[in-house]
Every structure is written in structure tokens, then in C-alpha cells.
């Protein structure tokens, strides 16, 4: 019986909710029940963050406890700063109802959180530069095609391309508007097939890999 609660009923819940989404889409347009379930999902996903927070706090607390070489001091700093910033944010919210109600939290938000976000996102610029160096080598026809399409587009996007030769933007724009379409369209199509088959297996309760069970009942 416990297996029923622990496994079979779980798969049934997944299947029923999937089917509700289908019924809404194909027959009803909008369905209050489906909307409510989606709101539930959003709430659950939000609350789950606390679980992540606990995992993170426990793992760093262990590092401090072990005095793990080279990291424990950083873990301690992490926990202290986490506590300060979270509690100041919470206090601000409790008093003003605004997410940025506390001056200290607001300062952290503007001058620590924000610049770090602005810094991390562009770090990809460095990595893409070296990735180009390694990926764009005409080792075979596949790589040569990747290289040619990529270079024309690069020279189209930068004003300097058109200044060097007027043909670069014309050819590059063709790659952007038409050349890339078959490849991109194919990914849309086959990705959708993959998701349908995977979802169907989950719907029937035959895809259990992600529930920790070994697929195929080995």
C-alpha cells in the first residue's frame, strides 16, 4: 500500500494535471481550474526556494565546523552577509510593504547586487572570444560552414564590416534572414517531438528516471 502513496499516486497527480492543461487548451480556452493549478505551481516553486536556502546554509555551516582549509572563512562571511542582507530586506518589507523598504538593503541592492549582475553577465564576452578562437577552425566542412556563417554575421553586426566591404552586410543579412532558418526550424521541430514523447512517457508513468527510479526497471 505504501508503494501506492509513494509512487503510483504521485504519477497519477502528474498525469491528471497534464490532462487538465490539455482539456483547457483544446476545449475550453480558459479554465479557472487550470489557472488556479498554475498559480499553485508558481507558489510551490516560490516556497521551494527556502529548501535551497537551507541546503546552502547547512553546507556552509559544515565547512565552518570542519574548518575546511581555504574556504571556511569565506563560508562564514557568506552566512553573515546573507543574514544581514536578508534580515534588513525583511525588516524593510515588514515596515513599508516594499521590497526595497530598508535603506541598508536598498544600498546593498543598488551597489552590490546590481553591479555584480552587470559584471557577471558580460563576463561571457571574454569566454565567447576564446570560444570563437577554438570553434571557428575549418577542420572539416561542418566547421567551415559554422565559420563562414559566423564571420559574415559578425561583420554585418559591427559597423566596421560595411566599412571594409559593402558586401559583408548583404551576405550576412541573408544568413540572418534565411541561411539560418532550416537549422533553427529543425531544432524547433525535433525538440518538440522529443518533448511530446518524453511527456507522453511521463503521462503514462513510464518515464520515472527523474523520480530517482532506474529506467527500464533494471
Amino acid at each position: 500500500m505504501s508503494e501506492v502513496y509513494k509512487r503510483e499516486l504521485v504519477y497519477l497527480v502528474t498525469a491528471v494535471i497534464t490532462v487538465i492543461m490539455f482539456v483547457e487548451y483544446f476545449f475550453l480556452g480558459t479554465w479557472q481550474l487550470a489557472e488556479t493549478l498554475r498559480t499553485y505551481a508558481t507558489i510551490i516553486a516560490n516556497i521551494a526556494l527556502g529548501l535551497g536556502a537551507i541546503t546552502l546554509v547547512v553546507s556552509h555551516a559544515k565547512k565552518i565546523q570542519r574548518r575546511a582549509a581555504g574556504v571556511w572563512a569565506f563560508s562564514a562571511w557568506l552566512l553573515i552577509f546573507l543574514a544581514i542582507s536578508f534580515l534588513s530586506g525583511l525588516a524593510g518589507w515588514a515596515m513599508t510593504g516594499s521590497g526595497q523598504g530598508n535603506p541598508m538593503y536598498d544600498w546593498f541592492f543598488r551597489y552590490v547586487y546590481t553591479p555584480l549582475g552587470q559584471t557577471l553577465y558580460p563576463i561571457t564576452g571574454f569566454y565567447i572570444f576564446s570560444a570563437c578562437y577554438r570553434a571557428f577552425r575549418a577542420r572539416n566542412i561542418d566547421a567551415a560552414l559554422l565559420l563562414i556563417a559566423g564571420c559574415f554575421v559578425i561583420l554585418t553586426n559591427a559597423p566596421v564590416g560595411g566599412a571594409i566591404w559593402g558586401g559583408f552586410p548583404i551576405i550576412g543579412r541573408w544568413f540572418l534572414d534565411y541561411g539560418q532558418v532550416p537549422g533553427m526550424r529543425t531544432f524547433l521541430i525535433v525538440g518538440a517531438f522529443g518533448m511530446l514523447a518524453y511527456g507522453f512517457r511521463a503521462l503514462l508513468g513510464r518515464e520515472r528516471g527523474f523520480y530517482g527510479e532506474v529506467a527500464g526497471g533494471e
Binding site: 565567447i128 570563437c132 561542418d142 556563417a149 554575421v153 559578425i154 553586426n157 541561411g179 537549422g183 529543425t186
Partner: peptide, 15 residues
């Protein structure tokens, strides 16, 4: 080959 052209254009745009 068509896939490679698509990925190349995408790569270039991301640059």
C-alpha cells in the same frame, strides 16, 4: 551542413 550554417549564424549574432 544546414544545421551548422544555422548554428554559425547564431553564434555570430551572439558575439
Amino acid at each position: 551542413w544546414f544545421i551548422m550554417i544555422g548554428l554559425g549564424a547564431y553564434f555570430g549574432n551572439t558575439v
